[in-house]
Amino acid sequence: MKNIGFDQLGDFLESQSFVDWVKGNEGSDHYFWEQWLKNNPQKKELVDEAIELIKGVEFRPLEVSDRSIDSALEKLNQRIDREKSIEETRSRVTRVRRRKFIGIAASIVLLLTFGAWFFYAGHPEMVTYTTGYGEWKTITLPDGSVVKLNANSELQHLKDWNKQPVRMVWLKGEAYFGVQKMMDIDREFKVITKDLGVEVLGTSFNVHARGQQTQVFLEEGKIKLDLGDEISYMEPGDLVVYSGPQSKVLDRRKKGQVTGNPGSWTEGVINLKDAYALDIFERLEEIYGVEIRVRNEEIFTRQYWVQLPMEELKIVIPILEKSMKVKITRKENTLYLE
């Protein structure tokens, strides 16, 4: 029981001791409040108002039976399960359709890829480049190819890379590749993510490998995608999203159907056009390692066009506020959107 303040109506309403006294609850500080009122006659009006509000109106709420709750819950669970099974059926259909692509060549590529993955993964003779949250690096590989490594990413290759028949790199996160074409021989360049392999001779493309999927966007040249049991070719401007765990293509777009430019971050801007809030948040979480919390979920229903500079978070926040028309409060590693 606090004996301070009590200048506002709210002070009384929030005091459990006062509420107990008004309601005549057992063990209430009866004596205290009688004395207090005697000593503070000027507060009588305020106290009367508070008593009024505590007594309030008595209601008898509508009965909601356990049976009706059970049946509503069962319905909800069925709906959630149904949505899930639709998802699974879709992926099964894609898999069946893809069978016709399977060929011996693909199997060999697959074997080589995964064989190499397992073989080299255990060896320490690797060169590793990493970027932290909010950090970007430009790497020049021994063959002159340039890799721009986005924040929170890792790129690895073998130490004696130049001696290998295939120029192989491993990627976690996101990178933009400007691959040099080798003059003498067609030495293949290959990017491997946990979902897929990208094979090229000389070209520019963006690989985004995070979460449960890898997205490849081809800017120029031609590339071959090794999707495990499918080989797919991409033309400039094409975009493919593939999930390893589900072994299915989640999204495939031709030139012109791609909104924004997935490679734009290399010019210092993340350009997300007609993007849903979830996609924007995912990008920010990847790049800055922040957690995003939303108070008004209306944000999820709208589409936004945001162009964010690749800068420190404190520079990005006000721009995001303006383009999404939200208010952002930052507490350590969490952004609260309102």
């Binding site: 909800l76 949505e83 979830l278 995003i292 919390r293 939303v294 108070r295 979920e297 609260y336």
Partner: peptide
């Protein structure tokens, strides 16, 4: 509730 379940990881605390 279906909406909450689907967006659960992005809801506030």
């Amino acid at each position: 509730f279906l909406y909450l379940f689907e967006h659960r990881s992005h809801l506030g605390k």
